[in-house]
Computed example of a mutant assay.
Amino acid sequence: MRATGIGSFPGDTQRDYDEALAVVLGELTGDEGIGHVPEVPGRGAIAAMTGRTLGLIAELDADLQPGGWRLTGSSGATPLDQRRARSLLAQDLDALEERASGHTGSFKTQVAGPWTLAATVERPRGDKLLADHGARRELAQALAEAVADHVGDLRRRLPAAAELVVQLDEPALPAVMAGAVPTASGFGKHRTIHPPEASEALEWVLAAVRDAGAVPWVHCCAPDVPLALLRGAGAAGVMVDLALLDADGMDAAAEALEAGDTIALGVVPTSGALPSDKALVERVLRWLDVLGLDPEVVGGQLVVTPACGLAGSTAADARRATELVRSVARSLAG
Rank of each mutant, 00 (worst) to 15 (best):
I6Y: 12
Q14T: 14
Q14S: 13
Q14V: 15
R15T: 14
L25C: 10
G26L: 12
D31H: 10
V37Y: 02
V37H: 00
V40H: 07
G42N: 01
I46R: 14
T53W: 01
L54A: 08
I57R: 02
I57D: 03
A58Y: 08
A58G: 14
D61A: 15
A62W: 01
G67Q: 13
G67A: 15
W69G: 02
L71Q: 06
T72Y: 09
G73T: 06
A77L: 11
T78P: 09
R86L: 00
L88E: 06
L89P: 05
Q91H: 08
L93A: 01
A95P: 01
A95C: 07
L96M: 08
Q110F: 07
G113D: 03
L117Y: 12
R123W: 07
A131H: 03
A135N: 04
A135Q: 05
R136D: 10
A142G: 13
A148H: 05
A148G: 13
D149K: 15
H150C: 09
V151I: 13
G152I: 02
G152P: 06
D153Q: 15
R157F: 10
R157G: 13
A161G: 00
E163I: 02
E163W: 04
L164R: 03
V166K: 02
Q167F: 04
D169N: 13
P171L: 07
A172G: 00
L173V: 04
P174T: 02
V176E: 02
A180S: 12
P182K: 11
T183I: 09
S185Q: 03
F187V: 10
F187S: 10
G188L: 04
R191F: 05
R191W: 00
I193Y: 03
H194Y: 14
E200S: 14
A201Q: 10
L202Y: 07
V209G: 13
A212N: 09
A212E: 13
G213I: 05
W217A: 12
P223G: 14
P226R: 04
G232V: 01
A233D: 06
L242I: 01
L244P: 06
L244Y: 06
A247Q: 14
D248K: 13
G249V: 01
D251M: 11
E255Q: 10
A256M: 10
A256F: 00
E258C: 07
T262K: 02
I263F: 06
A264D: 07
V267R: 03
P269K: 12
S271P: 08
G272W: 09
D277V: 12
K278Q: 14
K278R: 15
A279H: 09
V281W: 07
V298K: 07
G300L: 00
G300V: 00
Q301E: 14
P306N: 08
C308L: 04
A315Q: 13
A318D: 08
A318R: 01
T322L: 15
V325L: 10
V325Q: 05
R326G: 03
S327E: 15
G334V: 14
